[in-house]
Design a protein around this nucleic acid. Structure first.
Lengths: 355, 355
DNA sequence: CCATAAAGAGAAACCGGTTTCACATCTCAA
DNA sequence: TTGAGATGTGAAACCGGTTTCTCTTTATGG
């Protein structure tokens, strides 16, 4: 009643295991038609399916990859996972879901499991710190693709995907300047996440590039969650001079800002323009719908898996050229941004504003 | 440079593979302290980690389970997955993510992969039809836990979790009756999903139990998505007599209804009370916040994984007592429900209404 | 008619672990 | 002193496949 083995198939067909294996692998050279038939019917009758476990032992491939993410609840991940999965399936790869819950220890446990299970590769999509994980994976020769991270001492087995926040954020900044905004606020992600810095820097530098000095930008730290956005707006309102435009590190934060604004009687975009980042589903559904910097999430996932396959396909076990790829972001204008209140538009951008 | 094997560890420590294996398994009876030390330092120095693949070959256990879900984008799943994962980790189990995308063929492919990979069990959390999957899994003796499904010809290796929609929906019905509603609408899920029927039936029967006849219930088929909710409300408004209360098969649908209502100038809950089901994050955040029948999602996941472990722990390969467990639902009252317009409250329930 | 190559299939080793069984040494009581 | 039991370890078989090597049979051409 247990699953049939190759040996049983061989016996039933009256051939050797080797012959069955040849039929299985589709290696029909030097195989008589009739023998092949016999084996095939035996396979059929026993409903035989070869064990991937046994195969992996000799092939050193498990057709399996690990995906480390921080939090499945984060609306960023579903699309990324879809992208990863669709590409993975093209080669019949299966994915281990590793949800770290923002817990580095739990992440390390997962890394160990993945190494022990001999996954062919790992995708690190968490934005949490991973240096230790990376070392463990490199030690064990496991190819890695890592998202949005300045990879240190990158070996030949690690590719990375960078998100070019600059492009989209630059567009957002130009959009806001065109609407006449001059005083800005930024609700950042947690300081310990590199991506928080990338986003904040992109915002500051884009503004600086357009002649807005840094002291006109009020920055408050959020937590990439909605409640952080609410608290941040409270802080910002308490500060002296109120900004007229706000850029949040992600949409959830921006949504929190929107909620707090409503409950404080602040009109968006009348009194305050708000820009988010991510373009999650909610962004289009909020009231007002959120202007946001969009990430190509599905493409990020698909690209990550493709890069992993590239790593797997590279010949030799020694030095391999790693790849660092950037994906583009873009601005999606909706209803949460509008003309700055009581402020002269900056002439250079006025014509694009339409208000 | 490749990973060390048990043989290399044995050589380095000057012992046999068997001894290393004993150290690994923590089976220290009949092991001299000093031998154990030597082996341990050898393991340490080689950074040796035993291959789960090789282990699985003899142990017949892969410490791995498959999770079939329909759509990671569906806000129902993250919490379920968290529950599953947390319990899985207690035994160092890893999970294969199998996102069927509502595609039965893709689901079947996944089932085959999981069988081939010799997973210890499978959790079917999709609401799509799965009879063929189930057969394949049963044929191969793979234990299965299945959610919200009338399992046919259930063998000893299949447990099921039912969701007791009645309880929460009954509460919703009583709540609405207490508010004076008499004319109802229901936006169901797709007819081909059993769960659509369960929910609709629970609604109808609860109403019937309170003396509301079925012809006072207008039912329109949605798609468990937001756009289905919008379209459904359009249909409902086009019908003759308008309902004053609406029960949607899930929150996404209810959210669509809310949106359409707003754009049609219909006040919720002034003109129409709306009840959803799921209690997804959005339900608390919508405008107005949604009254909804809550599912214990995390608990469903955790329970599912526990039931799977139970199945794995049962001795013997033959008949095993399967388990059918029900989880409870409950009503969460928010702002989307209110007194019925221009209607006398039903006396029996009036006192609880407060309006 | 025979030498030789090609075709077809089996035996055995191997992948990296676990487990059984046998063997060697040590202890201690008789 | 000796033998029984306890203690400690290794050899080998096994898990279910793949792959190499060898062997037999058949076809081919001189």
């Amino acid at each position: 009643m247990g699953r049939a083995t190759i040996g049983e198939v061989a016996r039933k067909a009256g051939v050797s295991k080797a012959t069955v294996s040849r039929v299985l692998s589709g290696n029909y050279t030097y195989l008589r038609q009739e023998t092949r038939r016999r084996v095939e019917t035996a396979i059929e009758e026993l409903a035989y399916r070869p064990s991937s476990v046994a195969r992996s032992l000799t092939s050193k491939r498990t057709q399996t990859a690990g995906v480390m993410i921080a939090d499945i609840g984060n609306p960023f991940y579903p699309d990324v996972l879809r992208g990863i999965e669709d590409i993975a399936l093209t080669r019949r790869y299966n994915l281990f879901l590793c949800n770290t819950n923002y817990d580095m220890g739990r992440g390390m446990d997962y890394v160990h499991s993945l190494v022990d299970k001999r996954v062919d590769g790992v995708l690190i999509m968490t934005s949490g710190f991973a240096q230790e994980w990376l070392e463990e994976l490199e030690t064990n020769n496991v190819p890695v693709v890592i998202l949005d991270w300045e990879v240190q001492a990158r070996s030949g087995n690690v590719s990375a995907i960078g998100v070019d926040f600059r492009r989209g954020i630059q567009a957002a900044v130009e959009h806001l300047l065109a609407l006449g905004h001059r005083r800005f606020a930024h609700v950042s992600g947690p300081a310990h996440l590199p991506t928080s810095g990338y986003r904040a820097d992109a915002f500051r530098q884009s503004l600086a590039g357009c002649g807005i000095s840094t002291d006109q930008i009020l920055t408050v730290e959020g937590n990439l969650q909605q409640d952080g956005g609410r608290r941040a707006l409270v802080q910002i309102l308490a500060a002296g001079e109120r900004p007229t435009a706000l850029f949040a590190a992600n949409d959830l934060t921006a949504y929190g800002v929107l909620q707090e604004a409503r409950s404080q009687g602040i009109s968006v975009p009348g009194d305050l323009s708000v820009v988010g980042l991510d373009d999650i589903w909610l962004a289009a559904q909020s009231e007002p719908a959120l202007t946001t910097v969009a990430l190509p999430r599905y493409e990020i996932g698909a690209l990550a898996m493709r890069l992993l396959f590239d790593l797997l396909d590279k010949p030799g076990d020694h030095y391999i050229e790693s790849v660092y790829t950037r994906v583009r972001t873009s601005l999606i204008v909706r209803q949460s941004t509008g003309p700055a209140p009581q402020t002269e538009p900056i002439p250079a951008f006025a014509k694009a504003a339409g208000g």
